[in-house]
């Protein structure tokens, strides 16, 4: 468990260093995800004993992903007054845009999947 957490943090650290060092528009943890894919490739390719237990911490975090958004969510409740002046426009925009984005993305995915012959 601790070892797998250390590997995850190491990947994130590497991602942050690369993202900030090169001024990329990608968040460090997303590059860290790519680094972690590299770690998993190494594990399956060479099977070093040190990487045998690399999954538990990540599995645990993903099982409780909702929990991790609670502090930011509470911040929103306390800051709803920033919406005050334009609350109607913003509420309508968020609902309409989110629904439209979901529909366009899912339909595009399905249509193109069928076009490339699935």
């Amino acid at each position: 468990m601790i070892g797998s957490l250390a590997v995850i943090l190491g990947c994130q650290l590497l991602g942050e260093v690369v993202a900030r060092g090169l001024g990329l528009p990608v968040p460090g943890p997303v590059l860290g995800m790519a680094a972690m894919v590299g770690v998993l490739w190494l594990r399956d390719r060479f099977r070093p004993p040190v990487l045998a237990g690399v999954e538990p911490a990540g599995r645990f975090l993903l099982a409780h992903l909702s929990l991790l958004f609670v502090p930011a969510g509470v911040g929103v409740v306390g800051n709803l007054d920033v919406l005050a002046a334009e609350w109607l426009a913003l509420s309508v925009a968020l609902v309409v845009s989110t629904v439209l984005t979901l529909v366009v993305s899912v339909v595009t995915f399905r249509v193109v999947a069928r076009m490339v012959g699935e």
């Binding site: 990947c11 991602g15 790519a34 894919v37 911490a57 990540g58």
Partner: peptide
């Protein structure tokens, strides 16, 4: 832990 969880998305 949001950062580490993002890294963990590599698992699935």
């Amino acid at each position: 832990l949001l950062g580490p969880a993002t890294v963990a998305l590599a698992l699935p």
